[in-house]
């Protein structure tokens, strides 16, 4: 008799990488919907565009690398990268922004390093940083949240703006004609305001801060928080990184706010503006580029929180998650090397 031999264990969980990635995307849905609600169809278009290009790029590269295309594509990791880039770029940015970013993320950041599991940097964040530095105007021109702009840009309008090369000035003109408010993200507004000598209180009296955090942004962050909690519940991610990021950011922001409330945003504003929740639950938790041990992940998360606070408060960019995550990615192997758990039967090491 000849059996097909296999090594133990002969049992395995049903959990698969592809299911994991897919569930993560589903959990991002509340946040995505919230973004759509506030920024219009553009967000969805960008997401669809990014996912399509991501999968196509991955397939092309895998073919070039003579790897199984179908099997690898179906792990959904490229799609997740596309989704994260799609939600990170402004809703009405021209289509080539998404295209360049996604191709860069998949081709350079991921596949050139050996594909899934081998990349050092978070592909979505590396692409975002590349875009932010290369195309600062397009990447910072956010459409006014509908609550502030009091109008909704239609699907066809969005498509034409994205694909027919409406440049930033047109968008600005378009928007200016509607409500006359120059749009920037709340964090951008705070940064600009502080740099022009205004106090935080004065900045927050502006219309776009009518709900205290910047219209729409708090809701979006809450939606991502909800998705993140579901992921924790489903054990798609472990709690360490997200918790460490939020705690570290909260602590740092509290210290800054207590020392100088006029020039520093409060801890809650830090937590519920910008990309905080998206990054804390969906981006920094990318296992490939994060630290792996429990303690290592706490350190990794805390490092991101600290860097975000420092860059937001003292750096040149209004939001900082992309930079913070990339810097922490750099530290992950180092953290892993020095933060090894004590193995059974061994004395505490180091």
């Amino acid at each position: 008799m000849a059996f097909k031999l296999a090594s133990s264990p002969h049992l395995s969980t049903k959990a698969q990488t592809r299911g994991l990635m897919f569930k993560v995307m589903l959990c991002a849905l509340p946040g995505v919907l919230a973004q759509c609600y506030f920024f219009g169809w553009g967000t969805l278009i960008q997401i669809a565009l990014a996912i399509a290009i991501a999968v196509a790029t991955e397939a092309a590269v895998l073919k070039l690398r003579a790897r199984p295309v179908g099997k690898t594509i179906s792990d959904n990791s490229a799609a997740l990268t596309g989704l994260l880039i799609g939600v990170a770029i402004p809703a009405l940015a021209p289509w080539w922004i998404a295209a360049i970013g996604v191709v860069f993320a998949i081709l350079v950041v991921k596949q050139l390093y050996g594909g899934l599991g081998n990349n050092i940097f978070n592909p979505a964040m590396a692409a975002y940083v590349m875009l932010l530095i290369s195309f600062p105007v397009q990447m910072t021109t956010w459409v006014a949240p509908s609550g502030a702009a009091l109008n909704d840009i239609g699907l066809m309008q969005s498509l034409s703006i994205i694909f027919q090369g409406a440049d930033a000035e047109q968008i600005l003109a378009y928007r200016a004609g509607i409500d006359g408010v120059t749009m920037a993200t709340p964090l951008d507004a705070v940064k600009t305001g502080l740099s022009t000598g205004l106090t935080l209180d004065e900045i927050l009296t502006k219309a776009s801060f009518s709900d205290g955090f910047g219209i729409g942004w708090a809701a979006i962050n809450l939606a991502y928080l909800a998705g993140g909690l579901v992921m924790l519940k489903l054990k798609l991610i472990r709690w360490q990184i997200s918790t460490a990021i939020l705690a570290s950011l909260f602590v740092c922001a509290s210290i800054g706010y207590l020392l100088s409330p006029d020039t520093h945003m409060g801890p809650l504003m830090h937590l519920f503006s910008g990309a905080t929740m998206l990054a804390a639950f969906f981006i920094a938790t990318d296992p490939v580029t994060a630290a792996t041990s429990t303690r290592g992940r706490l350190i990794f998360g805390a490092l991101i929180g600290l860097l975000v606070y420092l860059i937001r408060s003292f750096g040149g960019y209004p939001d900082a998650f992309a930079f913070a995550v990339l810097l922490a990615n750099l530290c992950a192997p180092f953290i892993d090397y020095y933060v090894k758990p004590r193995a059974y039967g061994h004395r505490a090491s180091r």
Binding site: K4, A6, H10, L11, S12, A15, T17, L20, K71, D75, S77, G115, L116, G117, N118, R238, P287, V288, A290, T292, S293, T294, R297, D336, K340, P341, R342, A343, Y344, G345
Partner: peptide, 25 residues
Amino acid sequence: VAPPSPEQPCIRCGECAQACPAQLL
């Protein structure tokens, strides 16, 4: 006991480290 499924790349999810009773990596 299903026949072993094909090996896929490690995504460093760290679940193995969580499950290891000897606390190895």
